[in-house]
Nucleic acid binder design. Sequence first.
DNA 1: TTGTAGGCGTTATCAC
DNA 2: GTGATAACGCCTACAA
Lengths: 331, 331
Amino acid sequence: VTVEGRATSIDVARRCGVSQSTVSLVLSGKGAGRVSAATAAAVRAAADELGYRPNAAARALKTGASHTLGLVVPDVTNAFFGRMLRGAQRAARGAGYAVALVDTGNDHGWGDDAADLLRAGGADGMLLFGRPPAAGSAPAGGAPLVLIEAEAAAHPSVRLDVEAGVEAAARHLLGLGHERIAHVASEKDEATFGLRAARLDALLGAHPRAFAPHDAVGAARAVAALLAGERGVTALICDDDNIAAGAYLAARAAGRAIPATLSVVGFDDLDVALVLDPPLTTVAADAEALGRAAVELLLERLGRAPGAAAPVALVQPVALVERGSTAPPAG
Amino acid sequence: VTVEGRATSIDVARRCGVSQSTVSLVLSGKGAGRVSAATAAAVRAAADELGYRPNAAARALKTGASHTLGLVVPDVTNAFFGRMLRGAQRAARGAGYAVALVDTGNDHGWGDDAADLLRAGGADGMLLFGRPPAAGSAPAGGAPLVLIEAEAAAHPSVRLDVEAGVEAAARHLLGLGHERIAHVASEKDEATFGLRAARLDALLGAHPRAFAPHDAVGAARAVAALLAGERGVTALICDDDNIAAGAYLAARAAGRAIPATLSVVGFDDLDVALVLDPPLTTVAADAEALGRAAVELLLERLGRAPGAAAPVALVQPVALVERGSTAPPAG
DNA sequence: TTGTAGGCGTTATCAC
DNA sequence: GTGATAACGCCTACAA
C-alpha cells in the first residue's frame, strides 16, 4: 500500500523484469493467450504492490477517448435535475464513463461554458439541457452532442412529451368543469416551456398566463399578481411543482382554499408534491429515465462514425397523477 | 467555422508557416516579448480559422494536471447537495477547473467509486462527502483529498457546526417549555449525524430517538411509529428538512396540529421549509458556501507540495431560523 | 511468448 | 524572435 507519487507501467515492468509492453498487454486484458500465466501473475502482483494506476491522460491521448461525458444543466439546485443527474450518472458509470458537470446557473453563456468544459476536461461527448447550441458556435468543438428537453435537426435528442402532459392537465380541469384556467409558466425561455404554452393556447384559446421563477417564494409573487389581476380564474396549470408550491403560498395568503376555490396542477412530480397540503395533482415525469436515455443515446453515438445515421428524437411519456389539489370549481 | 475532425497545433503551424513550438508559445500566452506581434496575430488568426482547440489529454499528460476535480456525494437527489454542487462548481470554474461528479446513491462503495472516477477522468484532486475513506484504501490513488461533513487527521476538511445547530434547536425548544423532545435522526451513518446525536444526548439526557430516511414519505412512517410508541413527546428535532416534512405528514395523519400540539425543528433550510404550512423553524446551513470552501481548500492544497502544512479542519457556522412550527407545548 | 519502436499532441528547454 | 528536439505514459503493430 505504498503510495509514493505515481508508479508508471515502466516501473511495474522493471519491478518484475519484463518489458513495458508486456505490462500493458496484461493489464489491459489483451494478454489472453499471448502472455504466459506466470508472467501475467507476476505483472499483476508487481502492479498491485506498487499501487499502479494507469495514467488517464496518457491513455486518453493514445486512444483518443477520455471516457468522460460533459453534462450542462441550467440549475442543479432544482430537484428535477438532481434526479436527472442520477440517471445520467448511473448509466454513464455502468459504461465506464465519468460525468463532468457544468451548472450554468441559468445564464446563457452556453457556448462558453460547454467549450470551457471540453477544453478543460476533454469530454468525449456532451449532453446539453434546455436549448440547442447557438447556431454559429460549435460548443462541443465538434464532439458528439445530445440534447435534453430541446430539439435540433443536427443532433439526437430526448425530451418529455410535455404537450401530452399539459393537455392531460387541461382536459382534467376542463372535465371537472373549470372554464377559466390560467397558465403559470416558467420565466425561462427553454424549448420545453414554449411547447407547453403553444399546446395550451391551441387547446384553451385565449387564457391568462403569468411567468414565474422556479422557486416557491418568487412564484408566489407571480401567482399573487395573477390572482389579483385576473377575474374568475378557478384553476392553475403550473410548469413545475416548485411553481405550484408558490401557488399554494399565494393561495394561502389570498384566502383561497385549495381545491375548494382554486385547483392547482403541477409538473414533474417532485418530492414536494406529496408534502404540500393537499397533495398536489401533477404531471409525473421520470427525470431519471430522461438522464439515462440521454446518456445511452450519446454512448451509442460515440460508437458510430461521426456523421452516420440520422439523429433520433426520443420523446418520453408522462402521466397525470390525480391527487388532492383539483376539484370542481365552487358554485 | 469548418469543423473537420480535430485541428492540432501542427496544422495551425503549417497554415501560417511557423513552427509548432511558436504556435504553442503564442496560444499559451507565454509568447509575450518573445514572439513578434505580427506572427502572434497570424497564429491566432490561423487557429481561429481552423477552430483549433488544444487537446486536453495531451496537455494533461505533459503538465501532469487535468484541471478536473472529483466530487463524490451520497445522494444528488437531495436538495442540499444541489446547492453544495453549485457552490463547488462555481468556485471550481472560477479557477479553471471542471467538476466530475460521482453519486454513490448511498451505497458505500467508496473506494471503488472514487478510484473509478479517478481512473476514468484523471482528477487532480477529490472532494469526499460524509465519511472518511476506509483506512486501508487509497481512494484517490494518492491525489489530494478534501473531506466535506467529515473529519480525519490525514486530510483537510470542511463541515458545518452541526453541534451548535442542534444545540440551538434544543435550547429554543427548552426555552419554550418543552420537556419531552424527540430526535428524528437520519438513518445514514455519516459523521455529521453522529455528532448531532451525541450533542443532543449530552444536552437532553435520555430522550426518544427514531431513525428516518431522507424522504418525506419514508420519514413520515418513522415519525408515525415514534409518535405512537412514545408518550408525551411535544417536540421533534429533525436531522434534515425533508425529514421534517415527513413529520408534518405524520402529524397531519395523527391529528396533531403544528405547532399547537407538536413543535418541529428542521435542519438545512431548504426550499421546502418555506412551503410547509406552517413554515418550518429550522437550522439554516449555507450549503453553497460549504461547497465553495471545500473547493478552495482543495485548490489551495493543489498548489502546495504533496505533504506540506498540517491539514486544516474548517467549521462553518449555522443559525437557527425561527418560523411558525415551534410554540410552547399545549396545556 | 515476449521485446522493440513509433507516435498520440503538448509543453518546455535549448540552440540558432 | 524562432525552430528543432526531447520527453510525458501509454498502446499496438511488428519483429524476434
